[in-house]
């Protein structure tokens, strides 16, 4: 099973790749806080889902989840 670490690179296409900045766990779900690899630098959040031995990753757009992740990140920094 694929294991992602902080600082790791997630490549989707040749022109689209992200770097994992933080790994956050909320409600037994794992989220990856990433930033784009190239300029303009923008943050992105991915959600990890597992089915059998396969790992799926999808973009998170749910505002409430994004808010929770932001709060967690701030808590960590404090």
């Amino acid at each position: 099973m694929k294991d992602f670490k902080i600082g790791g690179k997630v490549t989707i296409n040749k022109d689209e790749s992200y770097i994992i900045i933080d790994i956050i766990k909320i409600n037994n779900k794992i989220y990856y806080l990433c930033s784009t690899n190239k300029k303009p630098i923008t943050p992105k959040v991915f959600e990890r889902e597992e089915e059998g031995e396969k790992v799926f990753i999808k973009f998170v757009e749910d505002k409430e989840i994004l808010k929770q992740i932001a709060e967690k990140v701030l808590e960590k920094n404090e």
Binding site: E49, E51, F56, I57, K58
Partner: peptide
């Protein structure tokens, strides 16, 4: 249906 959803929404799958 659930597995297809994972495939359809995953960027890595």
């Amino acid at each position: 249906m659930h597995t297809e959803h994972l495939y359809e929404n995953s960027i890595l799958s």
